[in-house]
Design a protein around this nucleic acid. Sequence first.
DNA 1: CAGAGGCTATCGATCGATCGATCGAACGTC
DNA 2: GACGTTCGATCGATCGATCGATAGCCTCTG
Lengths: 213, 213
Amino acid sequence: MAVSSRERVRAAAVKLFATKGFHGTGIRDLAQEAELSSASLYHYMGTKEDLLAEIMHTALNRLLDAAREATAGSTDPVARLRTLVALHVLAHAVGPAETRVVDNEVDVLSPAAREPVVALRDAYEHLWAAAIDEGVAAGVFHTAHPAVTRLALLEMCSGVARWYSPRGPLALDQLAEHYADLASRALGCTSPPGVHDLNRCREIVAKEWGVSV
Amino acid sequence: MAVSSRERVRAAAVKLFATKGFHGTGIRDLAQEAELSSASLYHYMGTKEDLLAEIMHTALNRLLDAAREATAGSTDPVARLRTLVALHVLAHAVGPAETRVVDNEVDVLSPAAREPVVALRDAYEHLWAAAIDEGVAAGVFHTAHPAVTRLALLEMCSGVARWYSPRGPLALDQLAEHYADLASRALGCTSPPGVHDLNRCREIVAKEWGVSV
DNA sequence: CAGAGGCTATCGATCGATCGATCGAACGTC
DNA sequence: GACGTTCGATCGATCGATCGATAGCCTCTG
């Protein structure tokens, strides 16, 4: 067997939840996509909501781990933020389905299931907040409302998952670099682009997401 | 009767579609929110999908009309783009529910119902594209990939509907101005902020959305 | 080595609940 | 009596989930 049933169920859920939404995806849709009976589905998952929550956990943990690894050891706030932007954009470009599920379906979780997911998201956003705040404190970023700017940039970068196509004219590394430039400029960054290691981001994405970038 | 049943049905749909999603909202949920029986709902709508499509049409037409009115007569691309950004942000801040429905539920429409909605959205985005392209041609904007930058800025501004709260520390006009600054900077705008008339945007939003801004 | 027992993976059939939608009837107003 | 508005009752379809059963495989035992 090339891929296990467990993996097929997960892949089916990511694909269908992303395109049709959680409530728009039926158990029978899932079963058909995974090439299993609807009864067999329950051998690999708890409830439909459990399946959604599990997808969100793995996706957010992967993003958080990747972000920590990519910025580890970097003290320059400008380079760190550019790295965070590039990684975020790459992740959303190579795994748009998973990302859309995480971004759009959080509200369908029950409060008990939502809480740890939101905590993971907050931990991730804290990396951005720290880089921005340090840059402002160091005088390399200039923004009147750092928290608002952080949200604006995050939304800007997450939007990539809603429109990017690998068949478009832009290669992945150009896309990531362009977004890093947009973010730097929006933050009023006066210093030169600096050396943030885009190749390191590509390697991490390739490793964590299991794709060639 | 303070508000007509027709208005209550529409308001209920906007609220519930925004918070629970189209497929997550049942006919009976709609009826309860509108204080009507589920049978009476059908006196004011066609199918549930018709109701969704009608909401999207009115919302997008309003945004498109407001954008055209706000930028009418303005020849300066910088001022025009700042106006578009400010208007977009204000609209998403005062009507987040309607906006989220338009942004998140387009895919649930059948192809026949989706087509005119997408056409409206394309017409609106064309206003942005024209302002950006003219600014690049005039040498006041500097961006290597204008189309990508347009998408990035649109996503950034639409994101406001996902987090803004009127109880936050930022007033609406500060928010709009801040986003105009972010967009100008991201576009590599070198000229001074210029005179884009934020008050005009506020008046248009107040008129079209029926709220005090 | 035979075979009993248990474990994993799968299924068809079916459960009660809810879905979107429709019907005929009753209400009040002109 | 015609019209606009509302409703209770109910339709067939589909929902998420569970049931008991089966087929294949591994392990332990005599």
